[in-house]
Design a binder for these strands. Structure first.
Lengths: 148, 148
DNA sequence: TATTGTTATACTCTATAACTATA
DNA sequence: TATAGTTATAGAGTATAACAATA
């Protein structure tokens, strides 16, 4: 090795793998994926959110949202409601069961985040800000989405 | 939104997407994936590396290495050599063409890294170290690989 | 025409088990 | 029996194009 270790690309991939594993360790037997969790969290805070908006926030293509919502609906955790104002849109709302599960998941997520806080200490804030700056890379780019 | 923005998990995913896009922007028309690049970089520094070792360094399952090397071999960039000492192993070596392309890719990668340096300044080093600490999460974990 | 959600398709990645050849 | 590489398979994720309904 040697060359890769000092690069952001390699390091961020390893770190993301570790972070996601840590989250799934807490999620345990809930059979909820990170993307499903993210959809639920966004929907809870934004009851009027549409599927296209969800796709943009989660940085996935619009078609990906469909099976994710299908899974949540099949488990009775969320519902699609046709928007009266513009009947092309569907508003995503959590059911009572969905809200209850989200509370549980957020508790689990907090355990995970607390573990990160303990590992990173004060440098956590600096890293978060730096990571958010990196998001600005795509703004600079000529445009275009993912290549691969 | 709101909830997700302050989390490491969400932020690291967005950041990784941006970083990878930025790398592919530089790789341009080379038709080399990040994983292929990583294999070439590791093989160049460790001429005796086996496929199993590659898999571990790159954090992919051993079967994933096979099609990656097939692609590199098909383009005449790398070769598998059966190890004389233990004929179960194959040593991965780059061809002259592979080494030449790797030099080019490293130049492109350096442009990408320089862009990150410019964006992040001194905080880059702190972030790199913090990200590497996060890799330690999996060590703490009960064990096990990816969940999903 | 343009947009939202959807379907369909192809490709990649991930995870796992099982096979072969070696040891 | 154990290990390295391979094959095969099933399940997710990703990227695109195209369609129906609606605007």
């Amino acid at each position: 090795m040697g060359y890769l270790e000092g690069t952001i690309g390699y390091t961020i991939r390893r770190a993301q793998l570790a972070v996601f594993q840590d989250i799934y360790r807490e999620f345990g037997d809930t059979r909820i994926t990170l993307t499903q969790f993210s959809v639920m969290a966004v929907a809870a805070d934004n009851p009027e959110v549409t599927q296209a908006e969800l796709a943009e926030v989660l940085a996935v293509e619009r078609p990906r949202i469909v099976p994710i919502l299908n899974a949540l609906e099949a488990r009775g955790l969320a519902k699609r409601l046709v928007c009266d104002i513009d009947r092309r849109n569907r508003r995503i709302v959590l059911t009572v069961e969905g809200l209850a599960l989200l509370q549980d998941l957020k508790r689990r997520f907090a355990v995970h985040e607390a573990r990160l806080d303990q590992m990173l200490g004060v440098s956590k804030r600096a890293m978060l800000l730096a990571l958010q700056e990196l998001g600005g890379l795509s703004a600079q780019a000529g445009s275009a989405g993912n290549r691969r």
